[in-house]
């Protein structure tokens, strides 16, 4: 029981750091995008693109594409959190909750790739 608590605390620390890194990185990229856009470096907003497209069409001379990258990084931060939870539960050999976390990850991936608005 106490071991589980210790492992849990390690997991929380790891996840907390990853979340903070994701938020800081995405905020920095969004700020950069806003500055580039304010400097007039914008392209029209592409329609119906996926998260993957955002990484493919990144152009440092186009503020909009940098903004989209920052937003994509922000979106991926909680996904990373779930991935880390799966890894941590597997390492703890807590199969029940590894499976639960994997289920959440699958739902997110379905939303990311298959559900169209």
């Amino acid at each position: 029981m106490e071991k589980r608590k210790e492992e849990d605390e390690r997991m929380q620390l790891l996840i907390g750091r990853a979340l903070l890194a994701g938020v800081l990185l995405s905020t920095a990229v969004m700020l950069l995008g806003l500055i580039l856009s304010a400097a007039g470096m914008t392209a029209p907003l592409p329609h119906g693109i996926s998260i993957v497209d955002v990484f493919l069409m990144l152009d440092p001379r186009d503020g909009t594409s940098v903004l989209l990258l920052g937003i994509a990084l922000l979106l991926l931060t909680p996904v990373l959190r779930v991935v880390l939870a799966v890894v941590s539960f597997v390492r703890e050999r807590d199969w029940r909750f590894a499976l639960v976390s994997l289920g959440v990850l699958v739902i997110l991936l379905i939303s990311m790739f298959f559900v169209k608005g």
Binding site: L19, M30, L31, G33, L34, S37, L45, H47, G48, I49, S50, I51, T64, L67, L68, G70, I71, L75, T77, P78, V79, R81, V82, V104, I107, L108, S111, M112, V115, K116, G117
Partner: peptide
């Protein structure tokens, strides 16, 4: 955060995410 992401992908693919306003 995880809950919001599940619907955010849908708004994103529907083209409702206005980059500058959102950022």
């Amino acid at each position: 955060g995880v809950t919001a992401v599940a619907s955010a992908f849908i708004y994103f693919s529907a083209g409702h995410v206005q980059p500058s306003i959102t950022a």
